[in-house]
Design a protein around this nucleic acid. Structure first.
Length: 480
RNA sequence: GGCGGCGUCGCCAAGUGGUAAGGCAAAGGUCUGCAAAACCUUUAUUCACCGGUUCAAAUCCGGUCGCCGCCUCCA
């Protein structure tokens, strides 16, 4: 079955066929580097990382470009607040972004261009737009004339009259039409600037993406992605600039991810209801966060909450425990020579079902459901005494393979469980030595069959969120 | 106001015409001194509501209600 993707431009799922067979050219709007990234940024980047990985897994050679917007009003504001040059701000938050993305196990894009390194290309396109009559300069600013570009608003499916009726648009005196947008902004005193045919200034927000995508991917390329909130105006304006300048279709498939919500409301800077990636990673394992973000379809909204993160943690732990169980069974050689029809069937079809789910517009939620199907079969077989090692090893490899493509389940099973426990143990109000002393005391009581005392100790530990696990090998403990 | 999306078990979440995946939680069982953990099993005749089309609808159409997003910087 061929890959089908939902294209915002057509509003429907379409069979994916790249311009050049076997090769995919993909551009995703990165961040404006003026502050820490929040979970919404994490989602967008994880989603397109997953798409990047799956395309490669499907045999495509992918050129993936993700930019940094490193010059912008917000960066300048921030720099002014702190009394530092703008690039101190942008460089700081580029480093932060890189750290966050690395923590979330993102693969590096093929290119990560910066707007400020492409000023010459930007100026060239603006000049071309002016020459072709799509743009005009006024007192050091250059604007794109939306009325000159007929297909304007084809992506967001609106029309100019409606947009104006919205009344929230301020009519800049310099603009010929209230919807016209800036390609070049003349600089005010004290602001960073670059020389241009229209005077000292800096690029507008949208033009950088047209310039950089053209440079690295050509005038027409396959996939352009970003959050839903970029559909208008950012992507709409990119289309206008690029198609007007080149006279060719810009992008073949537009992909947009849904928002991260807090209590069913969009997480955003302006609402102030956001969590930074850094904050969340202090509390949850990065792999858990990634698993959470992939547990819903990328176009659906996903609700960020403590409970949901905990559920993801439990779910991921379930997968790891099955893998640990396989390792143990393989080491022990239990059940050699036995087979299991259901397990064999699930193992044999996981890859096929995974592809089927992913080929349907990257349905990671469905794909994870199939992984859990196999996990359940594995657990059942292990509980029944195991089966032939080769089949168990295949089950493990099948699960790991899916994990590799999604960028999860990449740790050693034991290491993951220990990581989670270490994280929780660090928050305990008691020292580990004290816990172990109490456990010894309890075991002494149990040996003496003084169960009243042993249960009392257990309850005391439970009150501290510590759960005891008795086994023939002795008593271990974990944080609830 | 315009445009778009959503409403599936207590919670999360797949499913776009063929008779409801999966996870969490819960209950029962195995195990255990008792527990916990682990594992197994069970848990929506029903998909916001009302009509319609169809042999067949959560899925298509019309209407109602509720929620959300975009229209302004935003992943």
């Amino acid at each position: 079955m061929a890959l089908r993707v939902y294209n915002t431009l057509t509003g429907s799922k379409e069979e994916f066929a790249p311009l050049e067979p076997g090769k995919v050219k993909m551009y995703v709007c990165g961040v404006t580097v003026y502050d820490h990234c929040h979970i919404g940024h994490a989602r967008a980047n994880v989603v397109f990382d997953m798409i990047y990985r799956y395309l490669r897994h499907s045999g495509y050679e992918v050129t993936y470009v993700r930019n940094y917007t490193d010059i912008d009003d917000k960066i300048i504001n921030r720099a002014n607040q702190e009394g530092v040059p703008y690039n101190v701000i942008s460089e700081r938050y580029i480093a932060e972004f890189d750290r966050d993305m690395a923590a979330l196990a993102l693969d590096l894009p093929t290119h990560q261009p910066k707007a400020t390194e492409h000023i010459a290309e930007i100026i060239e396109i603006i000049q071309r737009l002016i020459d072709k009559g799509y743009a005009y300069d006024v007192e050091g600013d250059v604007y794109f004339s939306v009325e000159a570009f007929n297909p304007y608003l084809k992506l967001s499916k609106r029309n100019l009259e409606e947009m104006q009726a919205g009344a929230r648009i301020e009519v800049g005196e310099k603009k010929r039409h209230p919807m016209d947008f800036a390609l070049w902004k003349g600089s005010k005193p004290g602001e960073p600037y670059w020389e241009s045919p229209w005077g000292k200034g800096r690029p507008g927000w949208h033009i950088e993406c047209s310039a950089m995508s053209m440079k690295f991917l050509g005038e027409t390329f396959d996939i352009h992605g970003g959050g839903k909130d970029l559909v208008f105006p950012h992507h709409e304006n990119e289309i206008a600039q690029s198609e007007a300048a080149n006279g060719k279709p810009f992008v073949r498939y537009w992909l947009h991810n849904g928002f991260v919500n807090i209590n069913a409301e969009k997480m955003s800077k302006s609402l102030g209801n956001f969590f930074t990636i850094k904050e969340v990673l202090e509390k949850y394992d990065a792999e858990v966060l990634r698993f959470f973000l992939l547990s819903a379809h990328y176009r659906s909204p996903i609700d960020f909450s403590d409970q949901n993160l905990k559920e993801s943690e439990a779910g991921l732990e379930r997968i790891y425990k099955a893998l640990a169980g396989i390792d143990d069974a393989l080491a022990a050689g239990a059940g050699a020579g036995r087979t299991d029809e259901e397990l064999a069937e699930k193992v044999g079809t996981l890859d096929e079902r995974f592809r089927e789910a992913m080929d349907d517009d990257f349905n990671t939620a469905q794909a994870l459901g199939y992984v859990f199907d196999l996990v359940r079969a594995v657990n059942r077989v292990l509980a029944e005494g195991g089966c032939d090692g080769a089949l168990l090893a295949q089950a493990r490899d099948a699960i790991r393979q899916v994990g590799r493509v999604l960028g999860i389940i990449t740790s050693e099973a034991d290491a993951f469980v220990e990581r989670l426990q270490g994280r929780k143990a660090a928050e305990l109000p008691v020292a580990v030595e004290e816990i172990e002393r109490m456990i010894e005391e309890r075991n002494a009581a149990r040996k003496a069959k003084d169960y009243g005392k042993s249960d009392e100790i257990r309850d005391r530990l439970l009150a501290l969120n510590i759960v005891l696990l008795d086994s023939p090998q002795g008593t271990s403990w974990k944080v609830k």
